Simulated assay, not measured.
Amino acid sequence: MKGKVLLTAAVTGAGETTEKNPNVPVTPKEIANSAIESAKAGATVAHVHARNPETGGISHDLNHYREIVDRIRESETDVIINITSGGGGDFIPSLATPAAGGDGTDMQTPAERHEPVGELLPEMCTLDCGSTNFGNMIYMSPTDWLRDQAKRIQDSGVKPELECFDTGHIRFAKQLIQEGLIDGDPMFQFCLGIPWGAEADAETILYMKNRLPENAHWSAFGIGRMQMPIAGQSALLGGNVRVGLEDNIYLSKGVPAKNEQLVDKAVTMLHGHGLEPMTPAEARAHYQLRNPYGGDQ
């Protein structure tokens, strides 16, 4: 869609960011409200994780996801919901028992990872297309598990966003497409700058972009201080944009951000390049997403 960009707000994530920025939403109400405020600021999509309201850490509780989704859908502000399906993949090796995970390991089966998506049927969900060294942790998504997840997502009618943290993940995502497990025009997300995945720079974006299928749509995000530079590079190279507190918690050096502020900053950047965010209705039509509200948008 010429002149239009899909703008995603990744509103909370699952990282240990709540002590560094008090604006990171934790409770289902806070996460939903942040998604709504991001939409009012111009976001097309809200990408959501659930957190444990008592600890601030990751939550896989379906009831937490249900409350988030219900609050967003019942609001008067429209936004496309994109639920993570990448939870429960954190493996921290133990030197004492290397075959078993150490403290902090959090693993789920493909069926468990898919549960919020299959039960709540958002328009979109993420599908992390491979394992990676994530700092000193291993994020685990074995290929047969990913085939299982891809099939479950396909059967649900939800559009997968193919998350690629390194170049090999693009190769496997294309294998999923070849095997008929991804319907329609595929949507890719380049996840850049995460130790120790793909670099956050224009050269890497071009390398990954040039290896996509011809009918693919794509987006890119960078973490930390590279959030806005990568957003700008992605938009200029014909891709979509993602910002939000999952990836970066600062508005400027030392200044804690709110999600809606990061969205507003991205919108201003897009306007400077003669672009604007898609509305949720435009995006549902353009990307052939399911409509959770029924009827035409």
Rank of each mutant, 00 (worst) to 15 (best):
Q178H: 11
M107F: 06
N21T: 02
G130V: 07
D78N: 11
R152A: 15
P142G: 08
G232K: 13
K159M: 12
P110G: 08
T18P: 01
P186C: 10
G294V: 12
D264Y: 03
E163M: 01
I230F: 05
D247N: 15
Y139K: 04
G118D: 10
A173K: 03
G88F: 06
E19L: 11
D264E: 14
E19D: 14
E214S: 14
E54T: 11
G15I: 05
S252T: 12
E276F: 01
G184M: 12
K258E: 08
N210M: 04
M187G: 00
R66C: 04
G3A: 13
G104F: 05
K174M: 10
P93M: 07
D144C: 01
E282H: 04
R225Q: 11
Q175C: 01
P22K: 11
N215K: 13
N240D: 15
L206E: 08
L62D: 13
D166H: 15
V48L: 15
G104Y: 03
N33R: 03
M269P: 10
A10E: 01
D201G: 03
G238E: 10
L121S: 13
T143N: 07
M137C: 07
R225I: 09
I249K: 11
Q154M: 14
E67K: 14
M140P: 00
Y250I: 02
T12G: 05
Y287H: 13
A173L: 04
S219C: 09
E163R: 02
E19P: 00
Y250F: 15
G56A: 01
L62M: 10
G244R: 04
R71I: 15
P142T: 10
A99L: 15
F172P: 03
S234F: 05
P122V: 01
T97K: 13
I223L: 14
H114P: 00
L181D: 07
I249T: 14
T167Q: 05
P186L: 10
Q175W: 09
S141E: 03
A231D: 13
P142I: 06
C129D: 02
I182E: 11
R284L: 11
A46I: 06
V263H: 09
G197F: 08
G180T: 06
Y287D: 01
T97P: 00
K151Q: 15
E74W: 04
Y293T: 00
L7R: 06
A235W: 04
P292A: 13
K159F: 10
